[in-house]
Simulated scan of single mutants.
Amino acid sequence: MTNSSSKTTLTPTKTWIWQDYPICYQAEGDTGPAVVLVHGFGASWWHWRKNIPALAENCRVYTIDLIGFGASAKPQPGEQMHYTLETWGQQVADFCREVVGEPAFLVGNSIGCIVVMQAAVSNPDIALGVALLNCSLRLLHDRKRATLPWTRRVGAPVLQRLLSIKPLGQFFFNQVAKPKTVRKILLQAYANAEVVTDELVDILTAPASDPGAVAVFLAFTSYSTGPLPEDLLPQLPCPAIILWGTADPWEPIELGRELGNFPQVLKFIPLEGVGHCPQDEAPELVNPILQDWISERSIVINSAKLEA
């Protein structure tokens, strides 16, 4: 199997103009089906650096920075851009049409899972299949808040209101964006502390200094509406698989397993002892699963085309 080390040389990033804004993306691989990888909140295409080489052995792999994150543009929330899951879903769908040029396998992590499902549901023609890695359960959503312990049920809205006060929001972001704080957060999210390297911390903190980064962060922390995974899964126009790190402290696997009951989900695969970002923490587990899934689905799709 291809070495998953982040030292692997990757091709330079490219720029795609979407709604007049520059979007950063990376493309690797010359043959095979198209695969689009979508990061979670606060991350970027670099969060897939350990997966790209392995998948590019037999696929054309595209990784994209969602607008507001990574090296993509960060226009002002509300005035110039609405940072919603519907917006990001449409961005991914347009990317498949304008850059990839054909339907693709969509792979997401955390909030990126909701984004790829939204893209597939709203644009059925662009998705061959969907892989969800520790899907965000959106437990602070307005429709789910009543199920939370009272401390979180009451505390979250209060925090959201406080962060909406610009000076307080700016101060909070500046504290969270510090490398020391980011490392502490990652050590919660990752079960294997050795994976939380200086490189990973740099990947997540570097975009925080970009103009507009604070506003995007605060816009999303106040976002408690939009689609839930259980809204989108029954509407999926293609099959899905779900991978879930059992040691995820943010998205409990007990709740995640319920998503595996939807008919569209072909497989629910627990990853023992892995945290919230399995593609980065355990690429040696994730890469073969994705490779096999893409290969199996490609055979099914090609056979169906021949019979048609």
Rank of each mutant, 00 (worst) to 15 (best):
residue 127 A to E: 02
residue 127 A to K: 04
residue 127 A to Q: 03
residue 127 A to Y: 03
residue 128 L to Y: 09
residue 128 L to D: 05
residue 128 L to G: 01
residue 129 G to K: 02
residue 129 G to H: 00
residue 130 V to P: 00
residue 130 V to G: 01
residue 133 L to R: 00
residue 137 L to H: 05
residue 138 R to C: 13
residue 139 L to A: 12
residue 140 L to Y: 13
residue 140 L to T: 15
residue 145 R to K: 15
residue 146 A to E: 15
residue 147 T to C: 12
residue 147 T to I: 11
residue 147 T to Q: 15
residue 148 L to N: 14
residue 148 L to H: 06
residue 148 L to T: 04
residue 149 P to W: 10
residue 149 P to L: 09
residue 150 W to T: 13
residue 151 T to E: 11
residue 152 R to W: 10
residue 153 R to T: 05
residue 154 V to T: 11
residue 156 A to Y: 14
residue 157 P to S: 13
residue 157 P to N: 10
residue 159 L to M: 14
residue 160 Q to N: 14
residue 161 R to M: 14
residue 161 R to Y: 11
residue 161 R to E: 13
residue 162 L to R: 10
residue 163 L to K: 02
residue 164 S to D: 13
residue 167 P to D: 08
residue 168 L to W: 05
residue 168 L to T: 01
residue 169 G to V: 02
residue 169 G to F: 02
residue 169 G to T: 01
residue 171 F to Y: 07
residue 173 F to V: 12
residue 173 F to G: 00
residue 174 N to Q: 15
residue 175 Q to S: 08
residue 175 Q to Y: 10
residue 175 Q to A: 08
residue 176 V to H: 03
residue 176 V to S: 07
residue 176 V to P: 02
residue 177 A to I: 03
residue 177 A to Q: 10
residue 178 K to Q: 15
residue 179 P to K: 06
residue 179 P to G: 05
residue 179 P to N: 07
residue 180 K to Y: 10
residue 182 V to I: 15
residue 182 V to M: 15
residue 182 V to S: 05
residue 183 R to P: 02
residue 184 K to C: 08
residue 187 L to K: 11
residue 187 L to D: 07
residue 189 A to I: 09
residue 191 A to T: 01
residue 192 N to Y: 05
residue 192 N to Q: 08
residue 192 N to M: 04
residue 193 A to H: 11
residue 193 A to I: 02
residue 193 A to N: 09
residue 194 E to N: 09
residue 195 V to A: 09
residue 196 V to H: 02
residue 196 V to P: 00
residue 198 D to L: 07
residue 199 E to W: 09
residue 199 E to K: 06
residue 199 E to P: 00
residue 200 L to F: 10
residue 201 V to Y: 03
residue 201 V to K: 04
residue 202 D to W: 06
residue 203 I to M: 08
residue 204 L to P: 00
residue 204 L to G: 01
residue 204 L to Q: 07
residue 205 T to A: 04
residue 206 A to M: 08
residue 207 P to N: 03
residue 207 P to W: 01
residue 208 A to F: 06
residue 209 S to T: 14
residue 209 S to K: 14
residue 209 S to E: 14
residue 210 D to P: 01
residue 210 D to G: 05
residue 211 P to A: 09
residue 212 G to E: 03
residue 212 G to A: 08
residue 212 G to R: 04
residue 212 G to V: 07
residue 214 V to P: 00
residue 215 A to C: 04
residue 215 A to Y: 01
residue 216 V to P: 00
residue 216 V to Y: 01
residue 217 F to V: 05
residue 218 L to N: 06
residue 219 A to P: 01
residue 219 A to C: 07
residue 220 F to L: 14
residue 221 T to V: 15
residue 223 Y to S: 06
residue 223 Y to N: 11
residue 224 S to Q: 14
residue 224 S to H: 15
residue 226 G to H: 04
residue 226 G to P: 02
residue 227 P to M: 09
residue 227 P to N: 08
residue 228 L to R: 15
